[in-house]
């Protein structure tokens, strides 16, 4: 081989040979198109967005501290058809249960200020403050511990936290959200059991068979696919699944 006048060679500080220039004119747009295509397509296959909603709100209701902190709020209007009360479980505004200052008022009627967080039929309140008030008149008597025993069930689903899941997390359950949910539940946010039957999703708050809070004992089960066999009790519009964490079973 001898001299070829077109022996092009690229050095970054010299003028770019024309064959290189042409090559780049083809390759770089291709790369950029690839970048744009990915940015265009990826969000669409992240089919896991949360329709969670927030609303600053205040509630007049009866505050319950144990085992699951919640507030019992009379439903307005005609309540012939359903329960006379709605129950919202509570957390603080961070990854914690409601503060001691608020829990100290349990067993009383209060005006509670906070953020209503809801995702489909799961609603809870991130509490900011609570002021005691007089019991309202013309409202049926509250019986916090009186529930409707629905029987024993074996339910398959996933434990998640009651706050970030209905909140802005995406998707707020399964593995990517595990650590976050563990932080919340260990901080005192009620643990929720999510059961999906085809399109229907049901939520159960968790307690042990003695009706005590289970937070510290379920941490290792969070976000995993598990089966819980226990008694389901309906308190107004809130379902509680009572089972000892020792009896939870891991699936798959």
């Amino acid at each position: 081989m001898s001299t070829s006048p077109n022996d092009e060679f690229y050095v970054n500080y010299s003028k770019m040979p024309s064959s290189y220039r042409w090559f780049l004119f083809k390759v770089i747009p291709l790369l950029v198109i690839g970048v744009v295509a990915f940015a265009w397509l990826l969000p669409g296959i992240h089919n896991q967005f949360n329709s969670g909603k927030f609303q600053a709100q205040s509630f007049d209701g009866f505050l319950v501290g144990e085992p699951i902190p919640h507030i019992i709020v009379p439903r307005p209007g005609n309540t012939q058809a359903g329960p006379a009360f709605s129950r919202y479980f509570l957390s603080a505004t961070n990854k914690a249960g409601p503060s001691q200052k608020i829990l100290d008022q349990a067993g009383q009627w209060v005006t509670l200020k906070g953020v209503l967080v809801s995702r489909s039929n799961l609603s809870m309140v991130a509490v900011q403050s609570a002021e005691p008030i007089d019991p309202p008149t013309g409202v049926a008597e509250v019986r916090p511990d009186e529930g409707n025993a629905l029987g024993s069930y074996a339910l398959e689903g996933e434990i998640l936290d009651g706050k970030c899941y209905p909140g802005i997390m995406k998707p707020g359950h399964t593995k990517t959200h595990r650590a976050c949910a563990i932080r919340c539940i260990s901080g005192g946010v009620p643990a929720v059991f999510r059961v999906q039957n085809d399109g229907d999703v049901m939520y159960f708050l968790l307690a042990d068979s003695a009706g005590q809070a289970v937070n510290a004992r379920v941490l290792d089960w969070v976000a995993d696919s598990i089966r819980i066999t226990g008694e389901v009790t309906q308190y107004d519009d809130m379902y509680v699944l009572k089972a000892d964490p020792e009896g939870y079973e891991r699936l798959g």
Binding site: A39, L42, P43, G44, I168, K170
Partner: peptide, 23 residues
């Protein structure tokens, strides 16, 4: 910059009611 901007814009376009923080 185009990637990030398009990613966020397309996400927003899926449903304007979605909260896209965290995306």
């Amino acid at each position: 910059a185009a990637y990030i901007a398009i990613f966020m814009a397309v996400t927003k376009g899926i449903d304007s009611n979605l909260d896209i923080r965290g995306v």
